[in-house]
Computed example of a mutant assay.
Amino acid sequence: MNNSSNHDERIAKMTFASVYPHYLTKVEKKGRTKEELQSVIEWLTSFDEKKLQELIEEKVTFEKFFEYATLNPNASLISGIICGYRVEAIENTLTQKVRYLDKLVDELAKGRKMEKILRVS
Rank of each mutant, 00 (worst) to 15 (best):
Q96H: 05
K29P: 00
T70Q: 14
E58I: 00
H22M: 09
T93W: 01
M14S: 13
E49C: 00
V40H: 04
V98C: 07
L71S: 01
L52W: 07
A89I: 00
F65I: 10
Y68L: 15
R10V: 08
N74Y: 12
Y85H: 11
N92T: 04
P21T: 04
L55M: 13
Q38F: 11
F65S: 06
T61N: 07
E28L: 14
K97C: 01
C83K: 15
L71H: 02
K34I: 01
T45R: 07
A17N: 11
Y68V: 01
N6W: 14
T70K: 15
A89C: 02
N6K: 12
G84N: 10
G80S: 10
L44K: 05
V60I: 13
E49P: 00
V40L: 08
R86Q: 14
E35R: 12
F62Q: 03
A12C: 04
E63A: 10
G31T: 06
I81W: 02
P21C: 08
K64R: 13
S79H: 12
E67L: 12
P73N: 10
R86P: 02
G31M: 04
H22L: 15
V19D: 04
T45D: 05
T95I: 00
E67D: 14
T61K: 08
E9V: 06
E28Y: 00
V40A: 07
Q38Y: 11
A12Q: 08
R10D: 11
Q96C: 09
K50E: 15
K50H: 13
L55E: 02
N6A: 12
R86H: 11
N72H: 15
V40E: 06
F62R: 03
E54P: 00
E91D: 14
Q53H: 11
T70G: 07
N72K: 05
E58Q: 15
Y23V: 01
I82D: 01
F65M: 05
F66D: 06
T25M: 09
A75E: 13
L52F: 04
S39Q: 15
I82P: 00
F66Q: 05
Y23L: 05
M14R: 15
F62L: 05
I78K: 05
I11C: 01
Y20S: 01
C83H: 15
V87R: 01
L24A: 10
F16R: 02
K34F: 07
E9H: 09
I90T: 07
F65C: 06
R86Y: 12
Y20L: 14
